[in-house]
Amino acid sequence: MKAVLTSTLAVLAMLLGWEALVRGKAVSADLLAPPTAVLEALLRHPEILLDQGISTARETALGFLLACLIGAAMGAALSSAAPLRRVAMPWVLALQIVPKMALAPLFVVWLGVGAPCRLAFAVFIAFFPVLIGTTAGLAGTDSGALRLCRVLGAGWWQTVLRVRLPYAVPQLLAGMKTAATMALLGVVIGEFVTAQQGLGYVVMFAASLGETALVLAAITLLCGIGVALYGVVLLAEWAFARWYSAPMPAGEFG
């Protein structure tokens, strides 16, 4: 409780200091809008910001879901078939070395300036942590538990559902937490390069007009979307931990 109070006070103090710096002309209001101006911008254009915010939120959520599905499916496929792993893993890793932002304009060339482009890009940069979480989780199954399954004559599906999956979920969730932030990043970059809609577009547009207050207002909303999505994954993790009802073997990831 005391920790919460301290950090809340620290944030308030920082905001006050920021406001004071701008009002005291130490920093020009044109370069950095004060918190009150950001609040004002939020209240001045609620419908524009809300519209664009919903667009961003929807694409982020969808991108995140697709990234989770594709990442988990690919991870499961790669862990179950060694030959596939040998063929695919170098490519998957090579893709991770490419600075992925640099590929964003290519996605526009391939998919146009619409939602498919932004979604595809979000999935492209968000699926990897889920894939790694899935493979690490499936590989990390207690070897004793697997031996027990063999002794009992458990089938492949039984082993996966009753033992491998429960052991893999903590790592999978850790991967999904990273994917949640990556999906938002992907959508915003997509909005930058497609310049059509979304909060990322608002940021670009407002910045080009020197409207720093509006830029910061849009970023505030982006933070809200990020926190909400991350919160959903935390909630899932909490629910799983309750069911698991034991210390989780895997901690933070990435």
Partner: peptide, 14 residues
């Protein structure tokens, strides 16, 4: 019809 016990209990934690 064979029961097996190992060095570790290997109970499933959940």
């Amino acid at each position: 019809q064979t029961g097996v016990m190992f060095q570790d209990a290997t109970l499933l934690p959940w």
